[in-house]
Nucleic acid binder design. Structure first.
Lengths: 240, 240
DNA sequence: GGGCTTCGGTACGCTTGCGTACGGAAGGAA
DNA sequence: TTCCTTCCGTACGCAAGCGTACCGAAGCCC
């Protein structure tokens, strides 16, 4: 997953945004990135907090959530190795607009805010990549807004599982129905029913606290269009 | 509304983002802005379109919508004189990620993409203001995502009407129940029922095709927290 | 003024999903 | 092993909102 040095200086970090940089820009990332492990449910930063560094997921999956005054929490963004969550940093702010936390445990490459800011200022390529990613995050949040009002619980479950499966390396990952329900803003038992249906059709199987994707295509097809839309938004942010 | 020149060179455009610029930066806005009138329902740009210019509303209200493959359309952002809709432009892209159109007719200050880009490059103050506004737009889209899944039709109606009332100069504006229903992603008759309730309590009154805010406080109090949250996000983007 | 379109009031049965609750089972802790 | 917590299956009545439909009225066009 993490390939610290290759002969031609083609350092790859494991984060696809950083790896989309031209090889020359990537070499000195070694000095800038500290690889840390995030545990599941570990909060990366609370809303309003000072952003000390920017997190570039390698095989971890991070979630951005909006917290309502009654304590309800709804997921408004998810990021894996195709991005980073600190959109505020890329918009020259060092205060977090939203809380985010680790959804699926794994490695994250951390860049200090100072290094990040300095790279933004000195490398147009870097800055442009970050901005494209912000664009994808905005698109994705907008898509979620429409999705949440137009698509069924089952479609949204499938969407979430599809998205997460893409971001996790393997086919199995840790997840309780309860947490997924909170992310989607629905009942726990609603998720249990949807998961049951997806399992019956052979798309997934699950045991206590973990999901396995059995048939990726079936799962994707059960998801609403928002899965493909967001996937496309993030992948084109890397290539464009 | 539009004050073309004042003695000390304190030109004000009527758009609060532009007017938040230091007086020195504002003077030459005269050359950069063309004030045009948008008709209700006029599309400012379709998704995927080339952005020829950036629209800074003066007394018009613009909406950003996500269009689903079945043709359903849901509002994912609204902007009045406190912002601008072309977040893509501020992120150095000249392609529109979303469709946007004029919700409430009125004046808009248009800046060509070339001028906008050049200002972004030459004035850090300008660029920073634009980025702050993008941040508010992102925050707002995220809030909508949570709102759409957690709040009732009536709360969301009140939220929308409160937001729009703030953006329109006066207390009355043109609006059909049908259009509001489309924006919120709900039934037309659902909006009619909510509007009836808001009218009964004395918050608004309406006639065929138009709404009048009778009691702003009552209306705000009927709205969900998302009204205040978004209002705060956009206003702090101007001050911070 | 007459005709036609658009808009809003209202109603119907129906579906989805909510809130809640209870019990069983998995699996970690002691 | 036993206990205890966490997680999931399932069920119930209920509320919100959907899809649809019909009608009358407002208001525009000719």
């Amino acid at each position: 997953m993490l390939n610290l040095r290759r002969p031609a200086g083609a350092y790859t970090s494991g984060n696809r945004v950083l790896d989309a940089l031209p090889a020359g820009d990537r070499i000195d990332l070694i000095a800038d990135l500290e690889v840390v492990n995030f545990a599941a449910h570990q909060v990366t930063h609370e809303v309003g907090a000072f952003l000390g560094h920017v997190n570039f997921p390698i095989d971890a999956v991070l979630s951005v959530v909006a917290t309502l005054t009654n304590g309800d929490t709804v997921e408004v963004g998810t990021v894996g190795s195709e991005g980073f969550v600190e959109t505020d940093a890329a918009l020259h702010s060092s205060l977090a607009n939203r809380t985010s936390f680790c959804q699926v445990r794994g490695m994250v490459g951390q860049m200090s805010m100072a290094r990040f800011t300095s790279r933004m200022a000195t490398s147009q390529t870097f800055a442009q990549l970050m901005r494209r990613n912000v664009r994808a995050s905005l698109f994705s949040a907008q898509q979620f807004a429409a999705c949440n009002v137009k698509h069924s619980v089952q479609e949204r479950c499938a969407r979430w599982l599809s998205m997460t499966a893409d971001r996790v390396g393997g086919t199995e990952f840790i997840l309780t129905h309860d947490l997924l329900a909170i992310m989607l803003g629905v009942r726990r038992s609603g998720v249990s029913e949807a998961a049951e249906a997806l399992q019956r059709m052979g798309a997934i199987s699950y045991r206590r606290g973990a999901v396995t994707v059995k048939n990726q295509k079936l799962l994707n097809d059960s998801a609403c269009e928002c899965y493909e839309a967001c996937k496309h938004a993030f992948s084109s942010a890397l290539r464009e």
